[in-house]
Write a protein that binds this DNA or RNA. Structure first.
Lengths: 248, 248
DNA sequence: TCATTTAGTATAGTATTACTATCAAGTGTA
DNA sequence: TACACTTGATAGTAATACTATACTAAATGA
């Protein structure tokens, strides 16, 4: 069980929503050897892993460096996670679950189908709200990890074997959730899932490119998340039609 | 200088074109320490690297394994490439240059603006034609490497430093070339470069997902390159408008 | 033609990575 | 009190990602 502390002020869609409560969700127990949520070292391990992967990049990140950071040993970390790939997968599972929760939460009571899609685009292209809890993960870092490292969990030779343990389920669920909102908007559209993953993946690499390889984008200013958001929204409504439930 | 041997029969767009000639292009000399094209070991090194990276995946690929494969030593390989990341970059530079050449070549004398875009989508979503030359790279393997490993050359912490040596120029050029054809088709479209990279990247991961994580797509049959091609084409012409030079 | 540079090979060695094994100490609980 | 369970300390291994040195053969060039 993972606890999310939500304490944020959202000024999105002209309403101000203040949240301050807890949510819990499960993470597939085949990702870890021992649940990091059940101990202090475990929780510290994941939190500091996010800081270190952000700082060093996944390739330079090692269990040795993490052990030093949390004043523990490699042995202890290996008791929780088989290897660093699994730890990254754990972090991303947390993110995918959290994102699916946020989508569900933010769409609550929003009936306008276009608005529902806009909310999703906004969530995918803007940073997660920082929580005030000291025990929570650094959302700005988590966001950068999702953008720069997430493809490394599935672009591996043994993806088939890894996939068998259902560790990509939260990504698939998020994809299905967004696909559902797409189909609600335009039930004739033939590729809701592919469009869903395209939205997710494109929001990652357009953000990455606009910062690191701007010539691969059309960014002009330095407001890259606004840029990505506009690009994605523009193509989404051109693909699905400007007004809901009818083909163009 | 790199030599391409083209020997292929294309049945695309109802015409049969038979090609059998050579093309050469330069690869940025800051990628390598010594030009692999200038020696037999060098050429064998790159060719076998493609085979090995395909077979093992980039993470499991090492210079030691490559040395054994080409009956040479690690030392020799290190004289050509600083590290395996640079070797992958060399292979991808070759691919990006080749793809830009293919785009230019296949668009020659095609005036219909929609047809021009369709040709690009076809090139991005279908396997490269295999050449008959024994000395040439294995195109099927190269294709899989581009799909599964290409993002690993830019999703690294030191991307800024790597970018300074202009090693991503062929990717940027390919992006600019496609962006040009997009703008020709619809001069009002605001994001030609972002759409261009989205086409390239999306064609990679939709192909990857349709084979390895099909739930993230809408694939039904097993003809995944046809599927990706249809999805991308549908997407592209909805974004740019069904008929050229007018906004929908 | 002889001297010099260049390319490839052989061998050796280092620091780090990615683990595994063993055992002792502390803590919680039945 | 005894046992399970977790963590830590220490040690060790095979592989990785290199670097250094020195020798040989071939090409170049004055």
């Amino acid at each position: 069980m993972t606890t999310i502390f939500l304490k944020q002020i959202t000024t999105f869609t002209k309403t101000i929503v203040k949240m301050d409560f807890q949510v819990k969700f499960d993470i597939n127990d085949r990702i870890y050897l021992r649940n990091p949520e059940n101990s202090e070292v475990g929780k510290l391990m994941v939190k500091k892993a996010i800081d270190l992967i952000y700082e060093l990049g996944f390739e330079q990140f090692t269990f040795k460096k993490l052990a030093i950071e949390i004043h523990s040993t490699e042995t202890t970390i290996y008791r929780y996670f088989e290897n660093k790939h699994r730890l990254l997968l754990y972090i991303l599972n947390w993110y995918w679950c959290y994102m699916e929760f946020l989508v569900t939460f933010k769409l609550e009571n929003v009936t306008d189908k276009k608005e529902r899609l806009k909310i999703i685009v906004h969530l995918l292209t803007h940073e997660l709200a920082e929580s005030t809890s000291k025990f929570d993960y650094n959302k700005a870092f988590l966001n950068q990890i999702v953008i720069a490292e997430s493809s490394k969990v599935y672009l591996v030779k043994d993806v088939a074997e890894i996939n068998r343990s259902e560790v990509f389920k939260p990504y698939k669920d998020l994809c299905a959730k967004i696909a559902e909102v797409i189909s609600e908007y335009n039930s004739d559209y033939k590729y809701p899932r592919s469009l869903s993953t395209t939205l997710i993946e494109t929001s990652h690499h357009q953000q990455y490119f606009s910062v690191n390889l701007p010539k691969l984008t059309d960014i002009s200013s330095n407001k890259n998340s606004e840029f990505t958001s506009q690009f994605i929204e523009d193509f989404l409504f051109k693909v699905l039609g400007q007004s809901g439930d009818e083909m163009v």
